[in-house]
Design a binder for these strands. Structure first.
Lengths: 271, 271
DNA sequence: CGTAGCCTTGACCGCCCTCAAATTATGTGG
DNA sequence: CCACATAATTTGAGGGCGGTCAAGGCTACG
């Protein structure tokens, strides 16, 4: 069953032991399939349970009755949504599937039992939330500061990294099973302008998105354009001792590296 | 000591018993004063401890070496920053004071002892993080979808509501002890444009910001302009059983209720 | 083979940015 | 209390990124 795959992915990020993994598995309902464009959670309601994504892609949206929809996060294999139920908080956003999705549910009771017995699982969930918050902050940079080209490049870097961690990449490609309009919702630009930006990325030879398939042609160039620093994703290894920065000096180092990488600062976009 | 004030504010939002409050108090170091424009936490480092704000205002920033700074959140009395240390995660953003700030520290060891004995305190901290995430999503709407006028109005509504909960409002006014440039960083616009937007708000008679003092002149008009729905702030009462909606039909109800509920309760900003 | 949705491209417009200068707080020493 | 220096706020003129409206081409799927 692919549920294990999703849990394994979650476990890798959060360092769960195998007994913890199987306990988590037991707490899940059996997987259920949801068709594309279906609402899983609705803003303003209390979710009956949280969802753990097994396959497919879903997205978080904050309602904007009069304007365009604003996507505020993507959910990939191994991601959780509806964790707010565990805290008795109503949803402040909706969650909709973008593609066909397989997901399992975790009820609040199941979570309470689980976290009582395995505090490390509660920590794992908190870590997921912390990383989501970091992603959210990067999205704020995307829509606020970066040019549409840099923002799109950054989003592609993020998605590819996360899909890679979820084991959903093949070589330098991955499937993005949703429309350009969905990407536009994430970057807070119009579908028309997203398309133009996509063309620019294509013509500069950095990446190509076609038929729902993303191909990274020039990873280094893409990262440079996006000023992408994967630290915020806290991938496996991020909390391992390889990065032993405990004080400012280490930070200076890291910053210096990232600055040097920016050598051609505002000129990364070759035509 | 005003530490109690901050903890009481936190406790109100998170429903801490008085014994839990005093345990939390014991876990804090004695308050320390930080001058304005000082860095409390640095991106890329592991924080030695978390900070609980007692007074003043601080802000989270994600580094943008070449561009303008992007503020991704304000910290007011009763807010915590550096919670990532509790999860062994490095900082993905910096925290700087905007005004003179009093704050206490909570070390990771203190937190671990605390959360072992009082799981409800751990829940309270998680709830704070969940609300911060919701605020972050609203900021994404601010910079992505709303006009600069609506965004500024929304930010004022948010700040006033939170300062009200923190007991830092007087009638329809509150102090915002930072510059227009700081507000511009939060809305991802230039100080020049923020100033023009501020003028528009002033001329439309909705709100006035002058000499670091915000005055709400037309609360209803401001909320309408901003499409402000305070639900996402999960103020005291939001998680109380008065709203027992569990499914989609309930959502419609809630929206109606919450609109009705805004009549008196969210009316603290009368002149 | 037809239809519907998605993608692509063109022309024009407005919000916000940039650069620049004037005016007004804020704070400091005399 | 005043003179001065510095920072913050305010206003003007002009330009560009991305939005809007619209039409045509492509793809998937029945």
């Amino acid at each position: 069953m692919t549920v294990q795959l999703a849990i394994a992915r979650l476990a890798r990020n959060a360092q769960l032991s195998s007994s913890e993994q199987s306990a988590l598995l037991d707490a899940c309902t059996s997987p259920k399939r949801y068709e594309a464009r279906r609402e899983l959670l609705r803003e303003g309601t209390r979710a009956p349970a949280a969802f753990l994504l097994i396959s497919g892609v879903a997205a978080r949206f904050v309602g904007n009755p009069d304007g365009r929809a604003q996507c505020v996060g993507y959910l990939l294999r191994g991601d959780l949504c509806g964790k707010r139920t565990f805290l008795s908080l109503p949803m402040d956003h909706s969650v909709r599937t973008l593609s066909t999705v397989d997901a399992v549910s975790i009820t609040r009771d199941a979570y309470d039992r689980l976290s009582g017995t395995f505090p490390n699982i509660a920590r794992a969930f908190q870590r997921l939330s912390a990383v989501e918050a970091a992603v959210s902050r990067q999205w704020l940079l995307n829509v606020g500061q970066r040019s549409s080209l840099a923002a799109l490049a950054h989003l592609f870097c993020e998605l590819f990294s996360r899909l890679e961690a979820a084991g959903e990449t093949v070589q330098n490609t991955c499937r993005l099973p949703f429309t350009q309009a969905d990407l536009a919702d994430a970057l807070a630009i119009t579908p028309v302008h997203l398309n133009r930006t996509l063309m620019k990325l294509r013509k500069s030879g950095l990446a190509v998105l076609r038929h729902g398939q993303l191909s990274i042609l020039d990873a280094e160039g893409l990262r440079t354009t996006a000023r992408f620093d994967p630290l915020y994703l806290s991938g496996p290894g991020a909390q391992l001792p390889q990065l032993t920065l405990t004080a400012s000096p280490g930070a200076e180092e890291r910053r210096a590296i990232s600055l040097r990488r920016e050598d051609p600062p505002r000129r990364p976009l070759i035509v």
